[in-house]
């Protein structure tokens, strides 16, 4: 049983989606996350156990990304393998036998159309067991407020790449906090730092997707 669980983790960490996938080169022709998860469920391995191994694998690849040992393409491949596993686990989420950790609303702030960083955070957070509500790019503050209204007790992530859209980000944080003071807001993106995040009133700054996940996990544990 341990072997099959470890194989799922390995497939995610290495981005091996399914048998047909030619990536990575050293796993060509071997079963991927898709086939092994199917087989694990047939063998009555608990979905919560599968989810845990996925979360651990995503954490490992996220840490490697944070150390510049792997780059965006590897992280995206891992997220794709993770999504494949999540498809198999979907019925268990729907039946309530396993639960998401919470809801995470994310978007790139108004004036900014960059979506890669935002998408990476979305995938890694989702891969760690959160339900992600992705509002897209160039998102006005009213849209964030509406999403929070529709999803009470959610957490919010704001992304920006342009130095010049930090003002929009600061305004969005301000508006969210004015309407929903208890909502946790994480900010991230190239022009930001922990200092600027604090200055604009955000609860946290995440330098990379893994930091966002760690913060969210700590938040629900406390």
């Amino acid at each position: 049983m341990n072997e099959i669980i470890e194989s799922i983790g390995l497939c995610i960490e290495k981005g091996k989606v399914n048998k047909a996938s030619s990536y990575p080169i050293d796993m060509q022709g071997k079963d991927g996350a898709d086939e092994i998860t199917k087989s694990a469920l047939i063998q009555n391995i608990g979905p919560d156990e599968i989810l845990k191994t996925c979360n651990d694998a995503m954490q490992r690849i996220g840490e490697k990304f944070g150390r510049n040992e792997v780059f965006v393409p590897e992280l995206l491949m891992a997220a794709k393998a993770m999504t494949t596993v999540m498809e198999h686990l979907k019925p268990f989420f729907q039946a309530g036998s396993i639960k998401t950790k919470g809801k995470f609303i994310i978007g790139t702030v108004a004036g900014d159309l960059h979506n890669i960083g935002k998408n990476l955070v979305s995938m890694v957070v989702e891969g760690n067991g959160w339900e992600v509500i992705d509002l897209g790019v160039d998102v006005k503050k009213e849209k964030f407020i509406k999403a929070i209204e529709e999803n009470p007790n959610s957490f919010v992530g704001l992304s920006a790449l342009l130095t010049t859209t930090m003002e929009n980000m600061a305004n969005t944080v301000k508006e969210i906090k004015a309407e929903y003071p208890s909502i946790t807001v994480i900010v991230g993106g190239a022009p930001l730092s922990a200092e600027s995040a604090k200055k604009m009133g955000a609860d946290a700054y995440a330098a990379n997707p893994q930091e966002a996940v760690l913060f969210l996990n700590e938040k629900i544990a406390s």
């Binding site: 004036g111 342009l162 130095t163 010049t164 859209t165 003002e167």
Partner: peptide, 10 residues
């Protein structure tokens, strides 16, 4: 370019 080097995008 606007948006870079602290030159406001607007």
């Amino acid at each position: 370019s606007p948006g870079y080097c602290n030159w406001l995008v607007n």
